[in-house]
Nucleic acid binder design. Sequence first.
RNA 1: GCGAGAGUGGCGGAAUUGGCAGACGCACCGGCCUUAGGAGCCGGCGGUCGAACAGACUGUGGGGGUUCAAGUCCCCCCUCUCGCACCA
Length: 807
Amino acid sequence: MAKYNPVKVEAKWREIWEKNKTDSVDLDKAKKPFYNLMMFPYPSAEGLHVGNVFAFVGSDIQGRHKRLLGYDVFEPMGFDAFGMHSENFALKTGRHPARMVPKNIVHFREDQLKKMGLGLDWDHQVDTTSSDYYRWTQWMFVTLYKNGFAHKAKGQVNWCPGCKTVLAKEQVIEDKCERCSSVVEKRDMEQWYFKTTAFAEELLTKLDDLDWSERTKLAQRAWIGKSEGADVVFKLENGEEVTVFTTRPDTLFGATYMVFSPEHPLLDAITAPEREEELGKYRTEARAMSDADLGNDKREKTGVFTGAYAINPANGKRIPVWAADYVLMGYGTGAIMAVPAHDERDFEFAKKFGLEIVEVVTPPPGTPGVGETAYAGDGFLANSGPFDGLPAKTEGARRIVETLAAKGAAKFVTRYRLRDWCVSRQRYWGPPIPIIYCDKCGVVPVPEKDLPVELPFMEDFRPDGSGHSPLHGNEEFYRTTCPECGGPAVRETDVSDNFLCSAWYFYRYPSTDFDDRPFDPARTKKWLPVDLYVGGNEHAVLHLLYSRWLCKALHKAGHIDFDEPYKKFVAHGIIVKDGAKMSKSKGNIINPDDYVNEFGADAFRVYLMFMGAYLEGGDFRDGGVKAMKSFLDRLATAVSPGAGPLSDEPPTGSALLYVLHSTIKAVGSDIDRFSYNTAISRIMELVNHATKNKIRSREVSSVIIRLISPFAPHLAEELWEELGNRESVFKSSWPEHKEEHLARPEVEYVVQVNGKLRDRVNLAVGLSNEEIDEKVMNSPAVLKWIEGKELVKKIYVPDKLINLVVK
RNA sequence: GCGAGAGUGGCGGAAUUGGCAGACGCACCGGCCUUAGGAGCCGGCGGUCGAACAGACUGUGGGGGUUCAAGUCCCCCCUCUCGCACCA
């Protein structure tokens, strides 16, 4: 077999694998379970994106490698088909998601995924829109509710006018809807929340022990946003009290004014009558502004004096209270003590409005004075009464807080930026929130026996922007009876965020054959937590954070005995096309089908993995897939008995054995560290070596086939069969390298003079310095550079290099 | 602004601990084979000087430093990508 026809060969193996269930695993009998998870896609009408293929292939290589290493690999796939992506597309094209999604799923699975050579176990797929699945999504909701992790609350929410629903904070990117890019508005609404903040500290500290991509952990840490400081109570002159949060309680004596967020509820009560008009205007303007505008720290500070005064609890001074939009309602208490001498924002504000600036931390000599800028560093306290001279951030902060704490006016606190997860969506295409409202019994979760709460088919599913889901207008759905008292009741009509569906799907895969429980305890014990999860880092603070949180909640509720869902998470890179991001408008979208049909899935897979570092991403160039097809042809020619007889004698010759065994070793470790591009290049070198030296050996062929098999499974299988094997190559074993062949009798020494390469000499390994000298010092190429010069020093790097330093 | 990562031939990219820069591939050039080639095989390929597959110099964003030796370590600067961003 020289040139092979990928279309025929791949179809043949697809059929055999499916028939023999090569990629299925016996979930109960498996001895060395390895749960290899990839992020299930949403089955869009556009079809599988090349980014999906890149992610899946990179994950599949791990799965196949592990299989060859003797693990029982479980590699399932499913469809994340609920949610606004599907629904928005349906709205745009005038098709109903309930009709469109099943077709998309079939297309994804039969025409695309199955042609990619992924070793997927299709006996355990999930579809989040099927009631067998979302029944348990609803069970999750009820379970969370019963354990105090779900509650309904009124508050400010992010409203997307495009999608006509509220969004979670995580789904607002730079002030825009993650799905439709509309600018998000603030609204006050009553919504369902999951208590993500309950595990803020655990979500943060547990990151330290996780074997995850560092950048993913970094993103989660930043999002959780822990900050330690103190709450301090300020009394207002009208008798009201207001608490502020500060990370710098040591600077309390320097607090010369207070600032309230324009949205602060206490403003109405404290504003002096003569200031009301101006303040009202300011608050209206601020309300109209988007979060992005408010969050822009380059914008000039604005603010209005309220006419009210507060008392600084540290020194009893009377300080003015201002309202300014640089204080955000969404963080801390919505009010701050302003210390212009030691905070840049306060400094800028104080300068603009002529407010007092008092330095209470002495900067080290040479630091610009307080007149010019704020000093945020550490130092010793000054102008701070009894605390003068104390080291500010440590002893000073402690003593000041303790002193005030005695009067109940301060305490150390830790705050997080993380907010509770807003999960209600005023949309149609999602799992209905399983809650019933009864006048007599109040909020009643739907009992487990009544699940699922089926999503009724509605021809018109358009969101109307009323603040209710379209389900609200469906009387048959909306009106129900109370499961507790049997009286008339109404259903919650919002559906839950699609991210709830995806927060738990990996518990379901091993248990899809149970219809009376979301996940079977024994199966779960055997297979979870997930051994390896490969996916995009864009989900760092969405899916990955939500699913970690849900895991902790389920753990706390006693449903599972672990509290982290993924042992290892690897964030793959992003593919660009010719150096630019792919986008529909640029017309540079890669359609995987085109390449698979022309060059085969194997060539496409190998190219995707070869074009760049998997963890960094890569630059897709059109010619690449073809080049990989010809590499696979060359490989086939080199190893196939069809292209010329193979010798049954074991390979000999130290050069060949060295190349063979060092390649085995390198490819294995490259796969382990996701360095697929170098792994492939090592296989290329081995193939080149075999071709060039006309090596035709059964054993060499067997090694090469197994090394390439995780990358090009169909071709490997075909060649493996040609070699006379009856069982799948994936039932064989990963080749083992022998250290003895890596030891070379002779190595090439680099001879440097003053660090410059001047000669190369082949020498036996393990020579003494004297023996090296003998061989090296008389070489004409070296003599030329050292003759007549004083030899100052000789540096020996064993079996590698000698550097002669001359003057 | 803060945090992280990156900057290497015409191009994609290698270089795990400081030790031969440019592996592997694309493109290109030369040769062989061919009725033909968007096929295959052999060879070349950072730059400058040079007749040269002789040799030398130079070269990993820019500048400085440490070292026998720097793409790799340290300091300053520039550019790009990503994350967070008036978070008190």
